[in-house]
Write a protein that binds this DNA or RNA. Structure first.
Length: 192
DNA sequence: AGCAAGATTAGC
DNA sequence: CTAATCTTGCTA
């Protein structure tokens, strides 16, 4: 199975956010290989999207979004959690897709070790903060290009039966935009 | 320099 | 419902 190439991410951000549902996120961490199937994403559309970090201009934190597509954008949320995004769209458009939930596929013991053994399988990678923790994603990945990263995507041909489109979660502006997508009926998404 | 807010989560 | 906890950007 081949890695998804950076060209995949150079397209329209909403297209990437929808198309990523069903793809595999793989991490060859020092602990071992962990793989999850993407079941929930959100699109952040650059300067004209008030909820996007890039809307208020270039900063040290959001600089990766102003670069080319197909790079990892990791940031600290609420000073406590990490959120993982992949940059998208044309170079001049600072946009990204946030990964919000995965169905654990491989390396589940590693995920449980990182999250705590008591956590139910359905909650292991449910929510952006939980996803980064279970997968072992750190700030070290921020700014890395997909091609040279231990963190990458694969397509095994599996597709969701249907997609659900809703408003994004946890934002205070741009609430009306329906830019959250998830695998219909998946028990692994962050919320119902 | 000080302060409020934020793409969250676990626990009381 | 609230604490935890840190970066950014606004105000003085």
């Amino acid at each position: 199975m081949e890695r998804l190439k950076e060209d995949f991410f150079k397209r329209d951000t909403v297209w990437v956010a929808r198309e990523l549902i069903g793809k595999l996120l793989c991490h060859e961490s020092p602990a071992g290989l962990t793989i999850g199937r993407i079941v929930e994403t959100e699109a952040y559309l650059g300067k004209n999207d008030p909820a996007c970090h890039a809307a208020r201009g270039l900063t040290k934190r959001n600089a990766v979004m102003f670069g080319p597509a197909g790079h990892h954008y990791v940031y600290v949320s609420y000073g406590v959690h990490l959120c993982y995004n992949v940059t998208t769209d044309r170079e001049e458009l600072p946009a990204a897709v946030l990964l919000r939930a995965l169905e654990p596929c491989e390396g589940i013991p590693f995920m449980q070790a990182r999250r705590g053994n008591q956590v139910a399988l359905q909650r292991l990678c449910a929510g952006p903060g939980n996803l980064t923790r279970a997968m072992g994603i750190t700030m070290a990945q921020n700014g890395e290009a997909l091609a040279q990263s231990v963190l990458y995507y694969q397509d095994d041909g599996v597709k969701p039966p249907a997609l659900v489109t809703t408003k994004r979660i946890g934002i205070s502006c741009g609430q009306d935009l329906r830019l959250r997508f998830y695998w219909q009926g998946s028990p692994y998404i962050s919320r119902k």
